Amino acid sequence: MSKLIKPEGYRALLDKRETEQGIKLIKDFFQQNLATELRLRRVTAPLFVLKGLGINDDLNGVERPVSFPIKDLNDARAEVVHSLAKWKRLTLAEYGIEPGYGIYTDMNAIRADEELDNLHSLYVDQWDWEAVITAQDRTLQFLKDVVERIYSAVLRTEYLACECYPQLKPFLPRTIHFVHSEDLLQMYPNMSAKEREDAICRKYGCVFLIGIGAKLSNGEKHDGRAPDYDDWSTVAENGKQGLNGDILIWYPVLERSFELSSMGIRVDKEALLRQLKIEGEEEREQLYFHRQLLEGKLPLSIGGGIGQSRLCMLMLHKAHIGEIQASIWPAEMREECERSGMPLI
């Protein structure tokens, strides 16, 4: 309960009926805009995958996937996905998607090890997207261009929400600021990673933080990132590592920053081998997904995930993600939220 933020004087600006209507409005509008901006087609995605194929997302490498035996497969185990980062790349190859086009889908996950607070739930819902690129596209500038197109869709969604519900007032900046995690460390050397994110987001309103996963000059990572999807070890044009990053937004309702999207240019063969070696996970080279990539059977790609409940929370000015989605919360958190004007679904 110590992590629960209780904004003083908070009052939901939309009642439950308006909130449910707003959620549908935002989800329908944003996903269509995202698909148009990035030339994506919608596909159907799995809720779970077979264990041992290397397809599930390992996130920071410590989160335990929810798993269960399958009776008709001799009790082979399935895992509820953490995200679809690697599954999407297999799907791009299966569908024969051409460079410049891609796919998006609704991703639903259960993260049993999540520490629950205003932004973190056991239930995760996001738009997972992935697009085919060429070798020439594997640049920091290309990544920035895609980020700006995504942010333009976010801004249009904010405009729509505020038009439909005049009690909501826009707060997002007109442009997104780019900063590398190493530069951020140099700017705020005495702060923790989270404190640095808060400081830069408070200053600019919205930032794309580049280079998540590689060690910085202080010997620490800004944050963990699995070695087999984002390319965080390639040296980009600015001489720093990383072709990936996070979209972070300063949220005035909670007076803190929060991550809306994690994305990046994906590993090619060389980056995969390099990052598996850095992390001491060379044995993963024998897994199905990794063999497909190393044998040249998967296209080069860029992709990421955008939180659905988080986007709705942002657009509808809610103080707790449980005001947007139905999940399980500790009884004491529900009671404290009720007293603080944050009734959870």
Results as ranks from 00 to 15, higher is better:
residue 1 M to R: 10
residue 2 S to Y: 04
residue 3 K to T: 15
residue 5 I to W: 04
residue 5 I to G: 05
residue 7 P to Q: 14
residue 8 E to K: 10
residue 12 A to V: 09
residue 13 L to T: 07
residue 14 L to G: 11
residue 14 L to D: 09
residue 21 Q to C: 10
residue 22 G to C: 02
residue 27 K to Y: 06
residue 28 D to I: 02
residue 29 F to L: 14
residue 31 Q to A: 00
residue 33 N to F: 00
residue 33 N to Y: 00
residue 34 L to Y: 04
residue 36 T to H: 08
residue 40 L to M: 06
residue 44 T to W: 06
residue 45 A to H: 07
residue 51 K to G: 06
residue 51 K to P: 04
residue 51 K to L: 06
residue 53 L to M: 09
residue 54 G to M: 07
residue 57 D to W: 11
residue 58 D to C: 10
residue 61 G to R: 03
residue 64 R to Y: 02
residue 65 P to H: 15
residue 69 P to Q: 14
residue 70 I to G: 01
residue 70 I to S: 10
residue 72 D to P: 01
residue 76 A to D: 09
residue 79 E to M: 10
residue 91 T to F: 10
residue 98 E to L: 15
residue 99 P to I: 15
residue 103 I to M: 09
residue 109 A to V: 05
residue 109 A to W: 02
residue 110 I to N: 06
residue 114 E to V: 03
residue 119 L to T: 12
residue 121 S to P: 05
residue 122 L to W: 13
residue 123 Y to Q: 12
residue 123 Y to N: 13
residue 124 V to H: 12
residue 127 W to F: 15
residue 131 A to V: 09
residue 132 V to T: 07
residue 138 R to C: 07
residue 145 D to L: 01
residue 148 E to M: 03
residue 153 A to Y: 01
residue 153 A to V: 05
residue 155 L to A: 11
residue 165 Y to K: 07
residue 165 Y to E: 03
residue 169 K to V: 13
residue 173 P to K: 01
residue 179 V to Q: 01
residue 180 H to R: 08
residue 181 S to E: 12
residue 186 Q to E: 09
residue 187 M to G: 00
residue 189 P to D: 02
residue 191 M to N: 09
residue 192 S to C: 14
residue 199 A to T: 15
residue 203 K to G: 06
residue 204 Y to K: 00
residue 204 Y to R: 02
residue 207 V to W: 05
residue 211 G to I: 12
residue 213 G to S: 13
residue 213 G to T: 11
residue 217 S to N: 11
residue 222 H to W: 09
residue 224 G to C: 13
residue 230 D to E: 12
residue 231 D to A: 10
residue 232 W to Q: 08
residue 234 T to Y: 11
residue 239 G to I: 15
residue 241 Q to H: 11
residue 243 L to Q: 09
residue 245 G to M: 04
residue 250 W to E: 11
residue 254 L to E: 09
residue 256 R to P: 01
residue 256 R to Y: 00
residue 257 S to E: 15
residue 262 S to N: 04
residue 264 G to P: 08
residue 269 K to R: 14
residue 270 E to S: 14
residue 276 L to P: 14
residue 278 I to R: 05
residue 279 E to I: 08
residue 280 G to L: 03
residue 284 R to N: 11
residue 290 H to W: 07
residue 298 L to S: 02
residue 304 G to H: 04
residue 312 C to V: 15
residue 313 M to N: 04
residue 314 L to N: 01
residue 316 L to M: 14
residue 318 K to V: 11
residue 319 A to V: 06
residue 323 E to A: 11
residue 323 E to D: 12
residue 323 E to M: 10
residue 324 I to W: 03
residue 325 Q to P: 08
residue 325 Q to W: 03
residue 331 A to W: 01
residue 334 R to L: 08
residue 340 S to C: 12
residue 341 G to S: 12
residue 341 G to V: 10
residue 341 G to E: 09
residue 344 L to C: 06
